[in-house]
Amino acid sequence: MSVDVSKECDFINQAILGGDVRKSLSGGIQKIADEVNKFEGDSSNQQNEFQKNITDQQNNYEDKITKQQNDYEDKITKQQNNYETDLSKKENDFEGSIKNEQQAYEKNITGRQDNLEGRQGNLEVRQTNLENTFDQEIENAVSNNPSSAETVYARTDHVNNKTYNNLGERLDTLMNQLGYIPVDGGSFFDDYIEFKKDGGTF
């Protein structure tokens, strides 16, 4: 900052009267004071303006940061909601798929079981028919030759489904089985033997 007081200085140098000198000195001092006050006022205004600009920039920066943070949080929340929705849908689809597969499996097992039971029923019918036919054949054979037909028929143990080479072999096997009566013979005693179960022989 510079203050031009050259005119005042020239006037003082040329002044003759003391009053003119004092007036020139007073005018120069006032001029300097005015310039200093003006400078300080300008400086204060500039400082206030600068401070205002700094405050505005700081507020704008903080607002920008806050907006970015809010946008980021909204984005994360939206992604999390989408992920949870997608995961829930996949879980429901998986459970539905498992349920459908289980129902299809149970239906298939039930169908196969029904089919097996039907085949078993057919097999039992065929077995009964075969046994009836065999019994009829035996009856016919016995009518024609009772002795030999009954002997052949007696070789087969129809309870255990075992056929022996001859009737004697079957009878020997049966006698060996009956040679010792166990303590607990189950329904054997109730159905066939009418004596006390003592674990002995007879």
Rank of each mutant, 00 (worst) to 15 (best):
L123Q: 07
I32W: 01
S43A: 14
Q80Y: 02
E73Y: 05
D86E: 06
Q103K: 11
K38E: 07
K52V: 15
Q30C: 03
K107V: 03
I54L: 10
D93K: 01
N13D: 14
I54D: 03
I16K: 06
I98M: 05
D93W: 00
G18S: 08
D71Y: 01
N92G: 04
E40Q: 11
E95L: 08
Q113G: 08
T110F: 13
Y83C: 04
R22A: 12
S44T: 07
G27P: 07
K107W: 15
I109S: 09
E124T: 03
Q69D: 14
I65Q: 13
Q69M: 09
V21M: 00
N82Y: 03
D34H: 03
N53G: 14
Q79P: 00
S26F: 15
E101S: 12
N115I: 01
S26N: 14
E8T: 02
N115Q: 15
Q103H: 10
S24P: 01
D63S: 10
E117Q: 11
D86M: 06
A15D: 00
D20T: 00
E124A: 02
E8W: 10
Q79G: 00
Q47W: 15
S43P: 01
N82W: 02
F11R: 09
E101R: 08
V125Q: 09
E73P: 00
D114A: 05
I65M: 02
N100K: 11
Q120D: 06
V125L: 07
